[in-house]
Simulated assay, not measured.
Amino acid sequence: MPPRTDSRQRFLDAAADLFHTKGYHATGLNQLVSAGGAPKGSLYFHFPGGKEQLAAEALTQSSARLSDTLRAILADGDTDAVFAALAQNLEDSDFERGCPLATVALDAAAESELIRQACVAGFDSWRVAIHDFLLDKGVDAERAANLSVVALSMLEGGLLLAKTQRDIAPLRTVADHLRTTLERELP
């Protein structure tokens, strides 16, 4: 693996942003090179697998950042804060940035095993963060495993609806329903 450099990180950051807002197929190499602020040869030096490798690594980076954010918020025990942070992100981006994986997952995961695997790992890292939170709250392991899938699915659905409707109301509805569900489940 090539050494980490500022230009490598700039490519990852630019790619994460472009793929998040435009998707995989709507983002061209020239856009990536321009946004990365380095020559095309530099992109291939750092990412010999080209756009596909860059996308997978950018998705991995975005996933890790959101996983860290989820864990930090959930460490305080405030599930409503998760929804508030997601809603704020949507509003701050004028509803361009929902889930950092969903656009690419829907756009390219069926044709690229590398991208599909990055999406699987990313979604699973978020599910595990929720699972661990539930375990810490005393939910038994099997129930926590099931609830973490349901909670992540609700988050993703709420984000998608909020983004397409350009309204955070679906996220509020999901937050209310999940809060009620958790109140019944937590010992």
Rank of each mutant, 00 (worst) to 15 (best):
M1V: 08
P3H: 12
T5L: 12
T5I: 08
Q9C: 05
L12T: 05
A15R: 04
A16R: 12
D17H: 13
D17K: 11
L18T: 01
L18P: 06
L18V: 07
H20I: 01
K22C: 10
Y24T: 06
H25N: 11
A26W: 09
G28Y: 03
L32K: 02
S34G: 12
A38Y: 04
A38T: 03
Y44I: 04
H46S: 05
H46M: 05
Q53P: 00
A55G: 04
A56P: 03
A56I: 09
A56H: 03
E57R: 11
A58V: 11
L59I: 05
L59M: 15
Q61N: 10
S62C: 10
S62G: 10
S63T: 05
A64W: 00
R65V: 06
D68K: 05
D68C: 00
L70V: 07
A72Y: 03
I73E: 00
L74S: 01
A75T: 11
G77R: 12
F83H: 14
A85D: 10
A87T: 08
A87S: 15
A87P: 02
N89Y: 00
L90T: 09
F95E: 13
A102G: 10
T103F: 07
A109G: 11
E111N: 14
E113I: 07
L114S: 10
L114H: 05
Q117T: 14
A118N: 08
A121L: 14
G122L: 02
W126I: 02
R127F: 02
R127L: 04
H131C: 10
F133L: 08
F133R: 04
L135E: 10
D136A: 15
G138C: 10
G138L: 09
D140N: 12
R143K: 15
V150P: 01
A151F: 10
L155H: 06
E156G: 07
L159E: 04
L161D: 09
L161T: 02
A162N: 03
A162I: 03
A162H: 07
R166Y: 07
D167Y: 05
D167T: 03
A169L: 13
A169F: 11
P170I: 08
L171N: 04
R172Q: 14
T173F: 13
T173W: 14
V174P: 03
H177R: 12
H177T: 13
R179V: 02
R184Q: 14
E185N: 08
E185M: 14
E185Y: 07
L186H: 07
